[in-house]
Amino acid sequence: MSKRNAIRGGPGRASFLTLFVLLAPALIIFIAMVLVPVVEAAAFSLYKWNGLGPMTNFRGLRNFQALFSDEVVGKAISHNVLIAIFSLVVQLPMAMGLALIVSDEKFKGAVFFRTFFFLPYVLSEVITGALWQFIYQPQFGLVKLLWSTLLPGAQAPALLGDTKTVFWAILAVIVWKYFGLHMTIYVAGLQDIPKEQIEAATIDGASRKRIFASIILPGMRIPIQLSVFFSVIGSFQIFDVVWAMGRGDPVNAAETIVTYLYKMGLQRFNIGYGGAIAVFIFLLCLFFNLFYQKVLVREES
């Protein structure tokens, strides 16, 4: 204890300088670039402003009123929610299934598949989006090839040009890009489950289903929580892939809340309305965070 104080110069003045030097750089950058902008966004949301000159046109909550009656916002949010639901219902179970396969060391090729499936996650979202734009190209892409094999002579559909299909086409790319991350999280979790437990259960004659339900699933609580968190928060922030595959168009058919924020705020310079959208996104993430902490994390433990 006394040595502790010796090295740090005690809790007195000497250590204040040390603490300041150590903490100030990170704090200043973080506060200036993360906290202050979020507070500023909240302030902007109360004004009508184009980002130039003084911010004087106070609008109260009228930006929020406009937001709640804006059809595009409703559409965009419904897309974000669909992405989140699709991730939870399709992507995560799929990732879990694959993780169960590739975490088995007796399965030849497990390490190879594990490594390879994670690869799309390391690629940039923009490159991924651009690449899939080609795959979906009706004149050259893979879609054309599949189409002409299955239905010779028929015109291949322009999946990204049709308001009915564009969202689903992008959703498929999102799964392609991110399933490997979730699989990898699960593989790491599965490796922490003691093998003896599973072996003992097998010897006792427990079925695979039974082992999964009573040993593996409970042991995977933290990895599952983590991947649920990543996919829901990620779904509400999705931008790059959508932007690279047609900027949320045609006619907002693939719009997400962040592509709309970008269009309103930085393309049309409607900073007030953009600020209101930003506050809305922040509140959505905050509510999810609180819900997640209170309900999901606590109930299971």
Binding site: M33, L35, P37, V38, L261, G275, L286
Partner: peptide, 23 residues
């Protein structure tokens, strides 16, 4: 101080872009 840093997990980049651009 640690709590302030942890707040970052609640603040997505998208929320900050407009003020960040102006800044």
């Amino acid at each position: 101080v640690y709590g302030i840093f942890q707040l970052g997990f609640f603040f997505p980049l998208a929320v900050a872009i407009l003020p960040l651009y102006l800044q």
